[in-house]
């Protein structure tokens, strides 16, 4: 059976792509952010995943508002990155794992998750930037991938409790896959930020730090909050932390912190990084 080696949650701002392209890792603005990653890369070198299941939200690249899935799963042999509107150089395609994708689709529907299956899917910065941060300069990316999109864009969004359950089901389906593959689960987005309205620039450090701590010790803690609560506490885009919660659910059982980093700001965003493994 496949093995989940652990999980990593990380922020996904497009701006990071530009910083990487311009080699700004040592720039004073960026250093506190990029310095978070070497320990995670060392951990990845140790646990050697074959596949990354990446839980994120699409920002109007693959999905438009004509059809907006709550949960969507890629089932393509490869996933291309594309121009998202800023003309930032695109990254080479990512290899999929269709066997794992379809295994997940079969069991998730069996477990009563009403997902959308995508046999073609473009992946945006929320998918590519984390992989670029974990495996810098390795093209093509050394792991096969399964993209999973959660709707954090158009309300109504799935509840925090539903996302956690979805994550748990993802974890079970990976562990029931007849394969000796090693899988890392990645959740991207957050933490507190708001891009729109007079409240733009909203950050809630206290909540973010509490969330990161509780994600290890008591992930259900955040399910006490409704979606409007989370918007209020973390900003209109802060709700992307649902992707973190989903990824945490997939780790099943108890976890220990391998490494964490938190820094404000990256562009308009509080950036978080949290690497976990099962105890």
């Amino acid at each position: 059976m496949a093995k989940i080696v652990g999980g990593i949650n990380v922020t996904h701002v497009p701006y990071i792509g530009r910083a990487i392209a311009n080699n700004l890792q040592q720039d004073p603005y960026w250093k506190p952010f990029f310095d978070g990653f070497p320990p995670v890369r060392q951990w990845l070198a140790k646990v050697k995943p074959d596949i990354a299941v990446v839980i994120y939200n699409d920002h109007g690249l693959n999905f438009f508002l004509d059809k907006m899935p709550t949960f969507a799963i890629g089932a393509a042999p490869e996933y291309s990155n594309a121009d998202e509107g800023w003309g930032i150089p695109t990254l080479p395609p990512y290899q999929g794992d269709v066997d794992l994708s379809w295994h997940m689709i079969d069991s998730l529907i069996e477990e009563e998750f009403d997902i959308v299956t995508c046999q073609e899917m473009l992946v945006d910065h929320a998918f590519t930037i984390p992989l670029e941060l974990f495996w810098p300069d390795q093209h093509p990316c050394p792991v096969r991938t399964v993209p999973i999109c959660v709707n954090t864009v158009q309300f109504p969004l799935p509840t925090a409790a539903r996302c956690f359950k979805f994550g748990q089901a993802i974890g079970r389906t990976i562990e029931s896959w007849d394969s000796d593959a090693r899988v890392v689960v990645i959740g991207t987005g957050g933490l507190s930020h708001q891009l729109d309205g007079q409240r733009a620039g909203f950050i809630n450090k206290e909540f973010d730090l509490m969330f990161m701590e509780k994600l290890i010790s008591d992930p259900l803690w955040v399910t006490r909050y409704s979606i409007p609560d989370l918007v209020e506490l973390t900003g209109t885009q802060g709700v992307e932390l649902l992707n973190w919660l989903t990824a945490r659910g997939a780790l099943l059982g108890e976890v220990a912190k391998v490494h964490a980093n938190y820094h404000v700001p990256i562009s308009n965003t509080a950036s978080g990084l949290l690497c976990m493994e099962a105890v």
Binding site: Q154, R199, G235, T236
Partner: peptide
């Protein structure tokens, strides 16, 4: 929910 300066994209 009314949150000042905030629109939920519903």
């Amino acid at each position: 929910r009314v949150i000042p300066g905030t629109t939920m994209f519903d």
